[in-house]
Design a protein around this nucleic acid. Sequence first.
DNA 1: ACACAATATATCGTATAGCGATATATTTCA
DNA 2: TGAAATATATCGCTATACGATATATTGTGT
Lengths: 150, 150
Amino acid sequence: MQPKRKLTLADYQTLAEFRYALRVFLRFSEDAARSAGLASQQHQALLAIKGFAAMEPITIGHLAERLQIRPHSAVELVDRLEARSLVRRSPSPRDHRQVHLKLTIEGEEILERLSASHREQLARMEPQWKRMLEILHQEPALGAGGAGQE
Amino acid sequence: MQPKRKLTLADYQTLAEFRYALRVFLRFSEDAARSAGLASQQHQALLAIKGFAAMEPITIGHLAERLQIRPHSAVELVDRLEARSLVRRSPSPRDHRQVHLKLTIEGEEILERLSASHREQLARMEPQWKRMLEILHQEPALGAGGAGQE
DNA sequence: ACACAATATATCGTATAGCGATATATTTCA
DNA sequence: TGAAATATATCGCTATACGATATATTGTGT
């Protein structure tokens, strides 16, 4: 678990490049969402609701897990989405504490457009990301200590 | 440039899975930074400053580009880093408008620890990410229209 | 059946980060 | 030299996630 060798300048550069690529994607996504009239988190919530791989519709709690936020933050996010008529709440018939979430037609339409452009953008970035991930995955494995350039 | 085929439910699920993986990484990173006593953006700024692949030290403007934020947001970020003695400003000798940024010893130490754990985490996630990227990259290529499952 | 713990969602006040608009200093160029 | 361009800095604003807390519903042991 402890670091196996000292980090070289090249390691920092690779990590920085990776983070840069991430931020470029996130910026693209943020701008795309905003062009569609919503905040990035709202877009991500729509996607999580639509793409939830289960028979039962997603609940507030599951949404929070998928977005890695606290349940009560998901509540607020859904409040905003419902106010814009992009999502509808409905009480779960089984457990009346739970709330089921479903996209409205309008929500579906916005998500479809955003998802198409995101798929293209990700396809565009894929080669670069794969390259960086491979470099990051190259473990030193051999005991030969850091012959780093720093 | 326009969407080549209709999105299937599986497409949404893949996109949602990818986004979920992203958020898990970002949550890890956020928590790691916070455990080290800094905000995520501060960590990312340290990495961008250290990993800037150039002979000259990075400027505020370049930092903004690497973090995909506005220059004046980078100013504020550097203000906070300098207040914590993790970064030092110094005027560029060539162009007195520019400010050069450099990590302090303390900044270097914190970044080194965070970078080591990030490298491990990324190595851990690499197979999953690669798999998802490959799925996302599978273009329909052939004119055969969407035989999607939805 | 009842008290109580556990779970799921909701409410409220707070802190923070990035932004738009704008300002100042420095450099470039006609 | 004066004007435009560039780089950094300041200020007020907005939005989002959070902690603490509240309410409603379900599960459990006796």
